[in-house]
Design a protein around this nucleic acid. Sequence first.
DNA 1: AGTTCAACATACTACTCGGTATGTTGTCAA
DNA 2: TTGACAACATACCGAGTAGTATGTTGAACT
Lengths: 225, 225
Amino acid sequence: MAARPHLTEREEEIRSVGASDSSRATILDAAAACFMAKGYAASSIDDVARSLGSTKGRIYHHYPSKGDLFADVFRAGMEMNYAAIRPVRDAAGTAVARWRRMAMVHTRQMIVTRPYQRVVWEGVELYLRGATTPEQREEFARLMQYRNDYGAIFRQVIVAAREAGDMRFEDPRVTEQLMFVSLNSPLFWYTPRPGENERDIEVIVAQVVDFTARGLGVREGACNG
Amino acid sequence: MAARPHLTEREEEIRSVGASDSSRATILDAAAACFMAKGYAASSIDDVARSLGSTKGRIYHHYPSKGDLFADVFRAGMEMNYAAIRPVRDAAGTAVARWRRMAMVHTRQMIVTRPYQRVVWEGVELYLRGATTPEQREEFARLMQYRNDYGAIFRQVIVAAREAGDMRFEDPRVTEQLMFVSLNSPLFWYTPRPGENERDIEVIVAQVVDFTARGLGVREGACNG
DNA sequence: AGTTCAACATACTACTCGGTATGTTGTCAA
DNA sequence: TTGACAACATACCGAGTAGTATGTTGAACT
């Protein structure tokens, strides 16, 4: 009988924390949607709360400030990206083949988790513009580091592909920027159509990745599987 | 003696209007810089005025509202783009050669007139998000038309190049988006270095255009001049 | 049954910002 | 010299907003 209460205690602790996390996740979704729709500065906490049918109290119970809420959406978006490319980043095959799979997964992410990814984009801009309070600046710096590491993964792969003779480009830094801007571009021009299915998305993803692959100078016939 | 006063009158009218326009141009520059630095929503009229060493009165004397000021920066940015590509858009040569010159001029514009072009970018986003008042919406609609016409010029050229067998891509609409996102990308990652000259900019422009050209499937050896 | 506490809602404050109403000044025509 | 007007500056108002302080409630725990 000593183990049961202990187990139940942990179960309920998990369920309790899970309930709180569930509410936080709901807030996070609403915040992502609101920040995407109106941008950070034009979005008010009341807007987010209204879209939830709640009031500010709920949000300030979970987040100390608007900036922290935004940062958490940023973090969640980046974690989604890491989780998405994890299965393919260490897969077997040539560097260019790995890159192609990573690029497709990444681009699909931009479409499927668009609200979060637009917050990531705006978060990067806010940081680069220095539009952050000193306290938030170090948290944003961590998130930027997180994001730069993600970029470095791609950069390593395309540099390896270039060394293997399967890509050709000049400055890796500039090329990384061009690559991400291309792969991320659905953030700005993709709008979900009613009755759209996964096939339609795959068609778009293919075009985006093909364009970017050619831009990176992928050798003709190198891994078109 | 009848012609002299008339001439002087016109001269002074021109000088007078020119002085007013000069003040407006100064305001426009400051507004573009401010909107670029902080974004539309986070920029206040007082911010713009402060950066001019003036007060709100000066701005509201020339512009009826913050939105109109923003729209005028938008318009000015687009006019710069039209003026920049005018000499090359109707030049002789193949479509792909015309495209390359247009692309280089356009990309250079993104770097040289960056504050204005970032406002153009944000203006497009504001319109697409519907973050405009009903009155401003029709002015923004005109500006969007203006911008879409500009995009159509490029689209016609790349479609012609494809028909000539010098490019290969699928959906022209998607491809146009990808092309502009690539060419515009210096807006987001270029930062002027101290002591940078025109050569350095040309190196960047070349990389951006090369990447985009390959992305558009420009045939190997087709116009690398 | 009573206590505690998480998860909110409500009420309020201090402050910013867009816009307006009005005052001031230099300039130019008559 | 004097009105008129453009080009601002100054003073002010109302609306919205981030953040806080406090009230409320249902559920778990004892």
